[in-house]
Write a protein that binds this DNA or RNA. Structure first.
Lengths: 203, 203
DNA sequence: TAAATTTGCTGAACAGTGTTTATAAAACAA
DNA sequence: TTGTTTTATAAACACTGTTCAGCAAATTTA
C-alpha cells in the first residue's frame, strides 16, 4: 500500500519546510534571536508542531550547523582547480574570510556559538566540517612535501593557520577591533594574511 | 550635613554588593546563564532593586567587562620586568592563554560574547582594554625597532598575533577543535606559538 | 458502512527570562 | 507633626523553550 509511503513523504516535506524557514531566519537574525514561536508563525503552524519534527532547538542547530559546512565545503573545494598548493592555500584563506563576512550568522553558528558539541565529537554529525578541515590540511601537507614551506609538523601549521583565520573573522564579527576603524581593519586583515603566508613560505 | 554623604556611601556599597555577587556568578556560570533573579536571590533583595543601581543587564556587562581587562592588564604588566622585548612578547602570549584558560567565562565576556560595543568604541569604557593592547603593541614595536623582527608594519604584526592567540583560545573554549584530542590540542598550541614566534623572528 | 484506532495538530500551561510600574514603607526635612 | 524624598518590592508585561491533554481528521478494522 502506498499510503505509508505518502505519509513518510509528507513528513519529510514538513521537516524540510520547517528547516527551510528556520535556516532563513537563523541566517538573517541569528540563532539566539530566532524563536520557535517565530518560526511557527512563519510556517503558519503552532509552536508545538515543530516539536513533532525536531526533538528540540539543539537538533535544529545541528542540522543547520552541518548544512553550513556543506555550503562551505562546496566553496572550498572549488580551489582544488588550483594546481600550485601554496596558491591554493592562499585562495582557501580568501574563501574562508569571504564566507565569514558574507554569511556572518552562519559563521557564528559554525564556529562561535556555544552549543553541546558531543555529537560532533562522536563524528555523528560534522562530516562536511571534518572534510573541510582534511581538505585544508592536505593542502598544507602538499605545501610542506613539495618544499614550499619549511619542513614543519603539518598539524602545527594547519592548526596555526586555522586559529589565525578564525581569530580575525571572529574578532571582526564580534566587534573586538574597536581600536581600529573599519577601513583599517580591512587593510590590516589583507596585510596580515600576506605577512603570515609570507613568513611561512620557504623562499 | 553628613547624611547625603552617608547615603552616597550606602548607595555605592549596595552597587558594589550587587556587582561583587554578579561577577562571582558570571565567572562561575557564565553571563547568559546568570539571571537578574538569581543575583537578586543571592543578595536577598528583589530583582527590581537591582534596576535602581543598574540601568539594565548591559550596564553590568560593561562594568564586569572592564573589570576583566583590569585584571588582565595587571597580569600583563608584570611582563614589563622582562628586558628583552622578544622574550617579553613570548611571556605576554603565555599570560594571554593562561588567562583565557584559567578564567574562560571572563574571557568569554571580554572577547567572545555578542554585546553592544558602541560605548567601547567611544572610549567611554574600555580603558584597560586599550591600555592592554597598547602595551602589547609597544612591545611589538620595540621588537621591530631593535631588529628582533623584520621591518614590518607594527600594526600588522600586532593585529596578526592578537588574531592568532584569540583564534586558539576561542576555538578551544567553544570546543571547535574536536578533530583533535585534548592532549593533542595542548601540544599543538605550544607548537604553534613556538612556530609563529619562530617565523616572525629575525634571525 | 459503522465502529475503533491511529495520526497530526494545537491551546493552554509550566518554568524560565529581562524589565517596568504602582504601591507601600521608611528616612529625612520643615 | 506634617510633607517630601528615597528605597524596596510585589505584580505584571512580554518574551523564551518545552510539554501535554485533548480534539478532529485520516486510516484501519470488524
Amino acid at each position: 500500500m502506498g499510503i505509508s509511503e505518502r505519509k513518510g513523504r509528507e513528513k519529510q516535506e514538513m521537516r524540510d519546510l520547517i528547516l527551510r524557514e528556520a535556516t532563513r531566519m537563523f541566517i538573517e537574525e541569528g540563532y539566539e534571536k530566532t524563536s520557535i514561536r517565530s518560526i511557527a508563525d512563519r510556517i503558519e503552524y503552532s509552536p508545538a508542531t515543530i516539536y513533532l519534527y525536531f526533538k528540540d532547538k539543539d537538533e535544529m542547530f545541528f542540522v543547520i550547523h552541518e548544512q553550513g559546512f556543506e555550503k562551505f565545503l562546496a566553496k572550498l573545494e572549488k580551489t582544488s582547480a588550483i594546481g600550485h598548493p601554496y596558491e591554493r592555500l592562499f585562495s582557501m584563506g580568501h574563501v574562508y574570510l569571504t564566507f565569514a563576512f558574507d554569511h556572518p550568522e552562519y559563521y557564528d553558528l559554525m564556529f562561535i556559538i556555544r552549543a553541546p558539541m558531543n555529537k560532533i565529537a562522536k563524528d555523528e554529525e560534522w562530516h562536511c566540517g571534518r572534510k573541510s578541515f582534511d581538505f585544508f590540511r592536505d593542502t598544507v601537507r602538499e605545501c610542506i612535501e613539495k618544499g614550499y614551506m619549511k619542513p614543519t609538523s603539518v598539524d602545527v601549521v594547519a592548526f596555526s593557520i586555522l586559529s589565525f583565520m578564525h581569530g580575525m573573522a571572529s574578532l571582526a564579527i564580534r566587534e573586538r577591533f574597536k581600536m581600529y576603524t573599519e577601513e583599517e581593519v580591512k587593510q590590516l586583515m589583507e596585510g596580515s594574511i600576506k605577512m603570515m603566508l609570507g613568513v611561512l613560505e620557504n623562499k
